[in-house]
Design a protein around this nucleic acid. Structure first.
Lengths: 212, 212
DNA sequence: GTTTCAGCGATTGTATACAATTGTATCATA
DNA sequence: TATGATACAATTGTATACAATCGCTGAAAC
């Protein structure tokens, strides 16, 4: 294999993915030696990977006992949705205040693609563009710490809930909600942007929960 | 010295504190060997500490180059206040929904002390009781993930900004705000609790900024 | 039969040794 | 003198060795 100094980083991604896919079940123990022999590396990068995952909140370590895959209760998941909602709202508000030329270009582009894919009913690409749009907002908000937190929450949600939040019949609805956020940011109206985002996220939750 | 297995954890706190107090300036490089000799430990726990701080967003590492202090900008601090406000609001809402008998007893006790110290004008003890009250709310909210985040934010704020947020002339005001939150939680009125907390935090900011 | 505690195995935590990478300084050459 | 290549020093990344800790087992005492 061709590992050039990135072992630790790669390992983090690998283990994270296994946790997200529930191949490593919540509650199960992460033994350093097991992982190191499985991935054919020493314990050192394994420890670093586990450390990162712990900071991300995907695993929990008990001193001198080991690391355990963290499981989320229903309450935890509900909290996460709530937390993310507020993160997104703050982000939208800050984006409206702080977006610069580059951010606007990125947002413009995202919206262009989104309109296009909505028209074509391309669900898969819409999902990706949706992420791009929100990422563009995060960037525009220029809140470094918020970014770290929101990324973590998104990881948690990806881990805990398997939503079919995108349905074809909702595409135009979603588009128009995004448009509203977009226009508010563009007009540099922080409160309007915050409000629009609040409603968008609330609607997303409603749509996700509609029929499971 | 008496270091029993907690070296890495302690190191993280020590370095974090130095960064937040700007004893380690933003942009400066964190050399592993320097830190390890300064704290008289090996490079291993130093690396783990740096890894954690990187995950927190306080340092940034460039592969094969090293770790650099990022620190908190003015914008970061403003964001932290905003983030904390929302954390406290969510906490209050959840506390109103989820508090059990033990939580109520703890809240009752906090409020009792608070009334007492307000009457006596004991600033120092009020500050401590204030923390207790909020901690009791965190516990009542039963949001594990929120707790982790809010603790971190509080540490950041405590170490990075030096506010004189408590003045004697504000004590009764603060007390009555707390009473409102308390009563809403006690009545299990989540929205009222959230609202009361929102105003309380907003007022705290206003008071803190009043005359610096 | 139950309880307690000592010893052992397994695992984590830390230190050190080694490999790989990067940046710099030196020297040769155009 | 400027430029580029190469050797070297410094530093990070990884592996391994050693120490400390925890939980379990099993035997002895009651």
């Amino acid at each position: 294999m061709d590992r050039r100094g990135h072992t630790s980083e790669d390992l983090t991604s690998l283990i994270r993915e296994e946790i997200l896919k529930e191949e490593l079940r919540p509650g199960s123990k992460l033994t350093e030696q097991q992982l190191s022999s499985r991935f054919e590396v020493s314990r050192t990068p394994v420890r670093e990977a586990i450390g990162r995952l712990e900071a991300e909140g995907l695993v929990e370590t008990i001193p001198n006992r080991g690391a355990f895959v963290v499981g989320l209760s229903a309450v935890d998941t509900a909290d996460l949705f709530e937390i993310r909602k507020h993160y997104e709202v703050i982000t939208a508000r800050n984006a409206a205040e702080r977006a610069d030329k580059v951010d606007f270009e990125r947002l413009d582009e995202s919206m262009e693609f989104m309109r296009h894919y909505t028209e074509r009913g391309d669900l898969r690409r819409m999902k990706r563009i949706n992420r791009d749009f929100h990422e563009a907002l995060y960037a525009a908000a220029k809140s470094r710490l918020l970014l770290v937190s929101i990324r973590r929450v998104n990881i948690y949600l990806k881990l805990s809930v398997h939503t079919k939040d995108y349905r074809r019949e909702h595409l135009t609805e979603i588009l128009s909600e995004h448009e509203r956020v977009y226009r508010a940011v563009k007009k540099r109206d922080p409160e309007k942007a915050a409000m629009a985002m609040y409603e968008h996220i609330a609607n997303m939750s409603r749509r996700a929960l509609k029929k499971q």
